[in-house]
Design a protein around this nucleic acid. Structure first.
Lengths: 198, 198
DNA sequence: AAATAAAACTAATGGTATTAGTTTTATGAT
DNA sequence: ATCATAAAACTAATACCATTAGTTTTATTT
């Protein structure tokens, strides 16, 4: 009896690649051992020669997505600082989640968020944002609050956009720019109002 | 042969209730026909006498969660207006997602986001926020952008908090207050800076 | 008390992940 | 060049899941 593929030449990289495509094209929930095996013209058990199981595969996708996101952001922000940098970061972030909705989903809902590799990429993302906010000369605690705010905006926007949560027919890119500019302005002003009246 | 329960007295309300508890205690992914049936001391097929299937059950959870969230928010915001109202809304929103993480997850990742009942509760939530922002006298488009920003912050914060996405050891409630105050301040000032220098 | 309708059941189907054990194939050593 | 070995891919089996069909039981209504 001849095998489906005498030697398909599989390895974990090819599996992750196939799984990434499935995730981005058909959604994170479409990533199963069965679908990936079909896509690779191989029987499900064959994958276990290269990957411990579905759980580990998903964690690998999370890491893969996180690294890609980090590099996109770093690339696009470059040497910019201040408001310019924040806007560039925001646009790059959303561009990434639009291009890779499935992978992005895994980075934030990984089966095992404690995995060392994930912690690593998370902390490099964190550091990127911290550095970028350096120009604002905030108190040390306020920097962290400000970072959390920025992350909330970006993740919230992506997540809602992907799920079609923004019903109203109004340009999304303008909304992103509006909320980022408003937030930055508020951070810069320390949450005070311009006028004291009213 | 005696049945497991001669007449368990099931109905869709009891099923949704059981499923809600499972969702909030063990996570949204723990909601399966099998687990709910076990919890109710009934065989899996029995549920189909009251619910069309898992997909519909999840949609019902989404609606249930959305309504609960809406009422919590409405209750807590009350007649407040402006910054006070926004802060109250934010705290109530987070309090809800902390108390009902599983249900909240379903409201935003429903199997069928187009379901009429879901659209309804979504639009009442939207209207609540729009009304609340009325005091800021924004251009009509800016109101919608501002609403999207607020929703992004709240959903992003909840989502990241639930997934443990905020690594740093720093008070979360303070972060929430910081980002809301900053954002509102920016919205009020039209995204301008206080000083033109720099 | 009998008839009916609904609730809960059993049994079966087809899907999933995973493990154990077998065959095949590539590679490296003689 | 041949043979031994290790790994890759397989088949077969187990255990879970959702769902459907068809049956029995139970409550209710006539």
């Amino acid at each position: 009896m001849m095998a489906l593929s005498p030697r398909a030449g599989l390895d974990s990289v090819k599996i992750v690649q196939a799984a990434s495509e499935v995730a981005d094209r058909h959604g994170a929930e479409a990533v199963t051992i069965a679908t990936i095996a079909r896509k690779l013209n191989v029987r499900p058990p064959s994958l276990y020669n290269h990957v411990a199981g579905l759980r580990e595969l998903k964690t690998m996708l999370a890491v893969h997505g996180g690294k890609q996101l980090y590099h996109s952001l770093k690339q696009e922000v470059g040497e910019q600082q201040g408001e310019e940098a924040v806007l560039a970061l925001g646009k790059a972030y959303i561009a990434y989640t639009r291009a890779h909705p499935g992978l992005y989903e895994f980075t934030l809902r990984a089966p095992d968020p404690e995995a060392a590799e994930l912690q690593e990429v998370a902390s490099s993302l964190l550091q990127l944002i911290i550095d970028m906010l350096g120009t604002y000369h905030l108190e040390k605690e306020d920097i962290l609050h400000a970072v959390r705010g920025l992350r909330s905006i970006l993740h919230g926007f992506s997540s809602l956009e992907q799920k079609g949560g923004f019903g109203m027919p109004l340009n999304l890119d303008e909304s992103l720019e509006y909320m980022l500019t408003s937030y930055i302005s508020g951070v810069r002003n320390g949450g005070q109002q311009r006028d004291t009246e009213k």
